[in-house]
């Protein structure tokens, strides 16, 4: 003898285990469950199934940067976020990137990328308009945690933006131009390698603005465009 619930009852039982029934419907099915063993058994099976399926979702691996993937800028951003978020620790992330992804950090506009999971909502500026692509994010878990964003231009220009907690002292790095500023609980430092001073000053100004909340994107965009005018190849 087939004691399976009819299709309508199955819909109702599923909705019951999912908490989707209105109070009146819930009361009605509850009264039937109290007297119908087959219905109660079906309900128990569904509830057990739901709980067990949910339990399988607990096995979350450490999300890491893939070892061999096509080089896309936004992977590094993800790696930084995932690593910080899921592992809760800090891991170095380096790599060479290209502008292959339409939605990647190479997308037009100078909007900064906010790394939500990092301390104090670190903002990584977008400098694409000035011809500088974000090619890597490194998170150094040392005594003073330092986030480093590396940019490269088509003519050998190199920039590194670092951020660390205010009040701490990050290890010094070499460079031909340098600019520091503070935003909230973070200190930012932009270091260039071989970039003309005037160009660095414009780019650093735009980068600083992007790290501050409420900056004017159009103004930043204009400044980054200015940095491209007559810019000679970098030597660094």
């Amino acid at each position: 003898m087939d004691n399976s619930p009819n299709p309508d009852d199955l819909l109702t039982l599923n909705a019951l285990v999912d908490g989707e029934l209105a109070p009146a419907e819930r009361a009605e099915i509850a009264s039937r469950l109290a007297v119908d063993r087959d219905l109660a058994r079906a309900y128990a099976a569904l509830a057990r199934l739901k709980a067990t399926v949910a339990n399988t979702a607990d096995d979350v691996p450490t999300l890491r940067l893939p070892k061999t993937r096509r080089p896309v800028a936004w992977r590094l951003t993800a790696a930084a976020a995932c690593v910080a978020a899921v592992i809760g620790g800090l891991v170095a992330v380096h790599g060479l990137l290209s502008s292959a992804s339409p939605d990647a950090v190479t997308a037009e506009g100078p909007m900064a990328i906010t790394l939500a999971s990092l301390p104090a909502g670190t903002n990584i500026p977008r400098l694409d308009t000035a011809g500088l692509k974000l090619i890597g994010l490194a998170i150094d878990p040392g005594k003073v945690p330092v986030i480093t964003a590396s940019y490269r231009g088509p003519h050998g220009c190199r920039l590194d933006l670092r951020a660390w907690p205010a009040g701490a002292e990050a290890p010094a790095v070499t460079g031909t131009s340098r600019r520091n500023w503070a935003v909230g609980d973070l200190v930012y430092e932009l270091v260039a390698h071989g970039m003309p001073q005037w160009r660095f000053a414009i780019i650093a100004g735009a980068a600083e603005q992007q790290t501050r909340l409420g900056s004017d994107p159009e103004r930043v965009e204009r400044r980054l465009r200015e940095a491209n005018i007559g810019a000679p190849p970098c030597v660094g």
């Binding site: 936004w74 992977r75 590094l76 951003t77 993800a78 976020a81």
Partner: peptide
């Protein structure tokens, strides 16, 4: 990971 990066 890719989706998270795309979102960011």
């Amino acid at each position: 990971q890719e989706a998270a990066a795309r979102a960011l």
